[in-house]
C-alpha cells in the first residue's frame, strides 16, 4: 500500500506548494492548510501502513496480541494536527488584519515592512 500513499503524498505536496507560490493570500492560506495534511501523510507513510488494527492493547493482555498500526507516527501526527490548526488560524487572522489595514490581498502590494522606494541608510554616526 505504501507506493500508493507515496504518490498521494506527492500530490498533496504539489498542490500545496503550487498554491503557496501564488501571490494571492487566500490561495496561500489554502496551500498552508493542505501542507499540514501533506506532512501528516508523509509521517504516516514513513511509519508503514497496516489496515484496521489500532494500537490498543486488549483487556487482560500486557502487549498487543498481534501486529498493530505503528503508534509512534500517530502520536506525532496527533499533536501536529492541533498545532497546524493553531498556526493556520493565526495566519488566517493575520491575513484578514493585513487585508483590513492595507486593502490588498496581493503580496505585490503588501510592502509596508520592506517598502519599494526605501532609500539608502543615513551615512554618519
Amino acid at each position: 500500500m505504501e507506493p500508493v500513499f507515496a504518490l498521494l503524498t506527492g500530490l498533496f505536496l504539489t498542490v500545496s506548494v503550487y498554491l503557496m507560490l501564488s501571490k494571492s493570500i487566500i490561495r496561500m492560506l489554502l496551500g498552508v492548510a493542505i501542507l499540514g495534511n501533506a506532512v501528516n501523510l508523509l509521517l504516516f507513510t514513513n511509519g508503514r501502513i497496516l489496515r484496521e488494527v489500532p494500537p490498543v492493547i486488549a483487556a487482560g493482555l500486557d502487549v498487543p496480541a498481534g501486529p498493530t498500526a505503528n503508534p509512534l507516527p500517530q502520536a506525532l501526527i496527533l499533536t501536529a494536527i492541533v498545532i497546524s490548526f493553531s498556526f493556520f488560524a493565526f495566519l488566517l487572522v493575520l491575513a484578514w488584519r493585513a487585508y483590513g489595514t492595507l486593502g490588498a490581498d496581493n503580496t505585490d502590494r503588501m510592502r509596508v515592512a520592506e517598502p519599494e522606494d526605501g532609500g539608502p541608510p543615513p551615512s554618519g554616526y
Binding site: P54, V56, L78, T79, I81, V82
Partner: peptide, 12 residues
C-alpha cells in the same frame, strides 16, 4: 488512556 480518545480529541 485505554481506548481511543484523550485530551486533544476531547478538547476539540
Amino acid at each position: 488512556h485505554n481506548e481511543p480518545g484523550g485530551g486533544f480529541i476531547g478538547g476539540l
